[in-house]
Nucleic acid binder design. Structure first.
Lengths: 348, 348
DNA sequence: AGGAGGGATGAACGCGCTTACAAAGGCCAT
DNA sequence: ATGGCCTTTGTAAGCGCGTTCATCCCTCCT
């Protein structure tokens, strides 16, 4: 009764650690220890504290805890969009792994916009995240500066670059595209086009274009400018891009798509246009989304281990939190999954 | 120089408000006001504070701010999974809207598991979110209790229920399924099956089953138990479910799918099995994912305004934060989009 | 010219919790 | 029995910021 009254006078009458402590007849220090480091408290006291906590329905205040311990148990990440299954999977895996260790994920999206990416990152850092997962190496230097200033570990994902001075987990986008183009040339293609993602501020998209170009150059071929179209990662854009490519007098016999979503669009549109795939046109995707194997015909694509990527990012950060110093370079394998959208070009 | 040295002695040498204040020759109170309520400070002082903040690269400590102001500028939500585009879109919209008002989204996933849902929600609340977006009305009472205890506004989404005593934004899943079944009966179907989501702990999945059943009952028909299969929302599960349904002696002439992902699986598998859609089998999805219109044949499905849902959830919470008292009941319209996977049943 | 009124400022406290540090108590060995 | 050491507990000092309240200064009115 008295307590009720007193509480009402103070703050929000919400139960705090002091209430639990009083109820259990101990100091807040002991109550805090009982809740966080049970082994440091006598079993009898531990039980009393736990009982009164449960009794009062005590819910700790994470904010206060974070301020006192300089440690928020959150990790931030800013993804371009949730609307692409490939990120969704990686985030899912990341979130799981972090969750197992008691960490929560703070998420923001950038819509592939550099400025929004920076401001989102800033907000996450301000929010007090313990660490950060960045996507792509093309970050505003400001982001790294803030991270360093606040002494927060971070890791760059999706693009692996040994030369970078930032810890990274990912794969070599350049090499992956190189291999796709090489495969297409192996089976006879000479005129290869590309429906790429927007390369501006996106090191992955640009590396994929460069990789394909390099592979062709290595065999004395070129990928003509007019056969490379950049489009936002959207199915409808993929459809339209295919149409543009086939409005030209001499369309390619094979098209490398910047990701599976664009490839799906291309496959669907080819069907509408009556272009037989793979007989007259070979199509390759990138990501290997779950849907890739289910469409008709099943899509040849580069498999990206997005689950693994999320897990490793989590593991890296958790290790850093634990005071360890895991390897900052972490390359993942991608592999070409050949299904039914690729075949030798038609004989002319 | 001197400052450098002094800083190194203290804490983490990270720049804090006091540093900015000293540099600008004002008190921390004024510095704080300059940064947060510019109109309360003389222009000259404002400029000085801003300059030294920029100069020192000051990044505010959101945690300390949250503790002092009892206000974290974060909103929590726990979604079943990111792996379903329908949630992805809603989250995207939610996140956008919140971002415009300076709020960040704290995200967790439950994998459709009640226990994980509760623990995730608890963690978010402990993290100090200002408000919470819940998915589905079947929440552990504990969640609502904690929310009430901490006096945090929240809103239940995806299922609209006027009878509920929780604020909600969504649509009537029961009615939506009722309408789908009615439509199928209108065009002549009598034997209708369902590939539903797992109804346990999922009021949306169960309402959809109940709604379809009710529609049939209203016309003196029944949906036989053996024609209703519950499956996790996964494309491969949809494929397999279709196969099960067609292993029966008397397969349905139409199947209502719990969501589009299951429907995609069913469409793809029907193609493999050589069952002509819609000539011999009508298929209806739920959600109207972007992909629905692109598959072959384009999917008839119930359109769910997930963007709108995310936006409204954000608006509701923002209004509550602003001290307003918006309507707690917010029903959205869903509409049946008839494409090419539905047609009258074959004459027998 | 004098006082009232209002805006700008700074000192100090508090947000709820963690965590040195010190104090106290219990145990064993000498 | 006494000293030393380890374990358990309490005291109190922050963590970095927002915010109240008193103070001060400037302007305007009579």
């Amino acid at each position: 009764m008295t307590r009720q009254t007193r509480k009402r006078l103070h703050s929000d009458e919400s139960i705090k650690l002091a209430d639990v402590a009083r109820e259990a007849g101990v100091s807040t220090a002991t109550a805090s220890r009982a809740l966080n480091q049970p082994q440091k408290v006598r079993p009898a006291v531990l039980a009393r504290v736990r009982a009164s906590a449960a009794d009062l329905g005590y819910v700790p205040d994470g904010v206060a805890r974070a301020l006192a311990s300089q440690h928020s148990f959150t990790v931030g990440t800013v993804v371009p969009t949730f609307d692409n299954a490939i990120f969704a999977r990686a985030i899912d895996a990341l979130q799981h792994r972090l969750g197992e260790s008691g960490y929560t994920l703070l998420l923001a999206t950038s819509d592939y916009d550099a400025e929004r990416n920076t401001s989102a990152a800033r907000r996450l850092i301000e929010s007090g995240v313990d660490g950060m997962v960045l996507i792509g190496g093309e970050q505003d230097p400001e982001v790294f500066r803030m991270l360093d200033l606040k002494r927060r570990p971070y890791v760059v994902t999706w693009s692996y670059c040994a030369a970078s001075n930032h810890p990274c987990i990912g794969f070599d986008n350049h090499d992956a595209a190189y291999r796709i183009a090489s495969y297409l040339m192996d089976i006879g293609h000479r005129r290869i086009g590309m429906i790429a993602g927007i390369s501006l501020n996106n090191d992955r998209a640009s590396a994929r274009i460069a990789g394909a170009r390099a592979a062709m150059a290595a065999r004395g071929l070129v990928m003509p400018r007019e056969l490379v179209i950049e489009r936002p990662y959207d199915l409808a854009e993929g459809r339209q891009a295919l149409r543009v490519l086939f409005d030209r007098p001499e369309p390619p016999t094979a098209i490398i798509c910047g990701n599976d979503v664009l490839a799906f669009g291309a496959v669907f549109e080819a069907k509408v246009l009556g272009i037989p795939v793979p007989e007259r046109l070979s199509l390759v995707g990138f990501d290997d989304l779950p849907l890739a194997r289910h469409i008709d015909p099943p899509l040849t694509t580069m498999h990206v281990p997005s689950d693994e990527l999320g897990k490793r990012a989590a593991d890296y950060l958790l290790a850093r939190f634990g005071g360890q110093n895991p390897s900052p370079l972490n390359e993942l394998e991608v592999r070409l999954v050949v299904r039914d959208t690729t075949a030798p070009p038609p004989v002319r």
